[in-house]
Design a protein around this nucleic acid. Structure first.
Lengths: 142, 142
DNA sequence: AGGCTAGGTTGGCAAAGCCAACTCACGCCT
DNA sequence: AGGCGTGAGTTGGCTTTGCCAACCTAGCCT
């Protein structure tokens, strides 16, 4: 049996980013949010839940606390993505793309682009970098 | 602001598959599970929650109820993936791959393969099908 | 000193999840 | 026909999580 395996990477990933709000917090972080109040204003999330999510993401190494200081203000903590956090953009984009293709009445507000402006999409690719259609791909517990 | 937009595809997708257990139910479905008791045995999920998740996935068009009958048994309902459901394999694989690369002490138990057995991975690709590194990709609210 | 503001923490309540026990529908066996 | 076994849920009671609103805490500024 595949099982709810304790160190299976999918199970762990789901425990972490599958909690309510976590995906959306990461999306805002990727879109440039760094401060508590920014996340709060953009998402309308309760402040205690936001504090809990940010703390968990910091603990897990997806975000890093980084203090900043605006002129004439006391220093404050901000949250910025680590490399691991930045790389969830692939997952986020895959999910958004799936929703866009398969859920009714949805529009993807965010488009993912390479540095040079090319629109990119998420696909399965084989070892040589050739695209493989999703319908031809199957999980294989081996 | 990007906002918790009501018809943003990511928000809708998160509402649907971001609920606890839903991702794992879909993984088991992709791995071949079709019956209530199979999902239950593989995941150890409470039966009322499983019933709710399956019903929601059917409602959303990711699973379809299909009655089957084993010899000498009464007909029963099974759940099988629709095309939309099958295509979440891209999202699932992206998430598992991310966990495998960025979470400590994890192993991906499930490997995704094309029909001919080639191991595949999830990547960003541009319009011509060329792979773009995740670090070069950024969201763009346009 | 007193006020302002970002960034939280705390308390009370509602919703969701978990577990175990129960039901329901049907085929089988006698 | 009647009782049994089994898959597929449903129901009841408790626990956990989430939500909202109110409160607290620095440090800066006047």
């Amino acid at each position: 049996m595949t099982g709810p395996d304790e160190n299976c990477s999918l199970v762990k990933a789901v425990e972490l980013v599958g909690e309510r709000w976590t995906f959306l917090v990461l999306r805002e972080a990727l879109a440039g949010a760094t401060r508590f109040s920014e996340f709060r204003a953009r998402l309308g999330i309760a402040s205690d839940v936001l504090a809990a999510r940010l703390a968990k993401l910091v603990d897990s190494g997806l975000l890093a606390r980084q203090s900043y200081r605006e002129p004439g203000q006391r220093p404050r903590d901000g949250y910025c993505l680590t490399e691991a956090g930045r790389q969830v953009n692939l997952v986020l984009c895959a999910l958004e793309q799936w929703g866009d293709e398969h859920l009714p009445d949805t529009v993807s507000k965010v488009v993912y682009r390479a540095d040079d402006g090319r629109r990119v999409r998420v696909r399965f690719v084989d070892g040589e970098g050739a695209v493989v259609p999703a319908g031809d791909v199957h999980p294989d517990q081996g």
